[in-house]
């Protein structure tokens, strides 16, 4: 089996390596570099990797091949297109991988908003999988791949550049200093509505904490974008992180799992947030958070 790891030192490289090592095999690291390939476009990068892996267009590779990419906003965008071009199975955001003695592969991935996880088996010999960042158990230092291959520029490059990048911009105004906050209290969708965000704000005030938000809270307009914690918001590492009514999706965990002490208040004992929480309270946040606020205020004035 050949393993192609298409990660070039950016986010997720370590997870891709750890996943690759779990599968063994003859490993090649594929380096995709903008200097060589030109500005990123999904069709272009898919084509560059296709040409590396299956030089004869339309022909299945002679040996089983597993292509691993990090589940970043860039590679997760084009990886499915690569799978179609290779006639490969596509498995998105895996958090575990095993190979048995017979060479059969199994991948683990979260489904249904991380409430459950599935073990999936590819039916094809060629497989493209993206590896979930921050979810691959023990992504400690894994050695480098056996060989590193530079990915070449496809001949008919302009045919594959299906879109033009005009520029970059910040998604939301700044103003909330979450990155350097010592304490953060985050309102999740479980607070219930725009008027109930005050339960989180009151607790934040009592704790001298900044106010954070999960993505749906921002998407619904309950709090402005600059409060958002997670992969598409702020990455925070406070001393104390209190999550109110946050389920604990991987994108949220990516933003806060480095916090020193994590407290979760959630009424669902199976909410994934409890798997990273140091202290969990299984209860209605509308009862516990105000009780906590009152207690902290009483201690302060007392």
């Amino acid at each position: 089996m050949w393993l192609v790891e298409a990660a070039g030192g950016g986010p997720g490289t370590q997870e891709v390596r750890t996943c690759g090592q779990a599968l063994g095999g003859n490993c090649r690291g594929a380096l995709l570099e903008e200097e060589r390939l030109g500005p990123y476009a999904p069709g272009l990068y898919a084509e560059a990797l296709r040409a590396l892996i299956a030089p004869e267009d339309g022909e299945a590779p002679a040996v089983p091949i597993v292509v691993l990419l990090p589940h970043t906003y860039q590679s997760a965008e084009y990886a499915p297109r690569l799978a179609v071009r290779l006639g490969a199975a596509y498995i998105a955001s895996v958090s575990g991988a095993t190979i048995d003695d017979g060479g059969s592969l199994r991948f683990r991935r979260s489904i249904l908003q991380a409430k459950l996880q599935a073990e999936v088996r590819p039916k094809t010999r060629t497989v493209v999988a993206t590896v979930q960042i921050g979810a691959f158990g023990g992504a400690e230092s894994a050695g480098p791949p056996d060989h590193v291959v530079e990915v070449g520029r496809p001949a008919d490059i302009d045919e594959h550049r299906e879109r033009e990048t005009l520029g970059r911009e910040a998604a939301g105004a700044g103003g909330v200093d979450l990155a350097s906050a010592e304490r953060i209290v985050t309102a999740g969708r479980g607070v219930g509505g725009p008027d109930e965000v005050s339960v989180a704000a009151d607790l934040a005030a009592a704790l001298d904490a900044e106010l954070g938000a999960s993505r749906p809270v921002v998407d619904n307009g309950w709090l402005p974008r600059e409060h958002q914690v997670g992969s598409s918001g702020h990455i925070v590492t406070p001393n104390l992180y209190v999550a109110l009514g946050v389920s604990g999706s991987i994108q949220h965990l990516m933003g806060m799992s480095g916090s020193r002490i994590i407290v979760a208040i959630n009424k669902d004992p199976e909410a994934p947030i409890f798997s990273v929480a140091h202290y969990g309270i299984v209860a209605d946040l509308h009862e516990v958070a105000p009780a906590l606020t009152r207690l902290l205020e009483a201690r302060r004035s007392g």
Binding site: A83, A88, A89, Y90, I91, R106, S110, I111, A114, K115, L116, Q117, A118, E119, V120, R121, P122, K123, T124, V127, I262, P269, E270, P272, F274, S275, V276, A277, H278, Y279, G280, I281, V282, A283, D284, E287, V288, P290, A291, L292, R294, L295
Partner: peptide, 28 residues
């Protein structure tokens, strides 16, 4: 291209302290 072989609950976490069944004041 894939077949789901099994669906399970995610493994329990590293085992933080869980406060359950207490009154709001006691939990706080």
């Amino acid at each position: 291209g894939i077949e789901t072989e099994s669906v399970t609950l995610p493994p329990a976490g590293a085992g933080g302290v869980v406060i359950e069944g207490a009154s709001a004041e006691a939990a706080a």
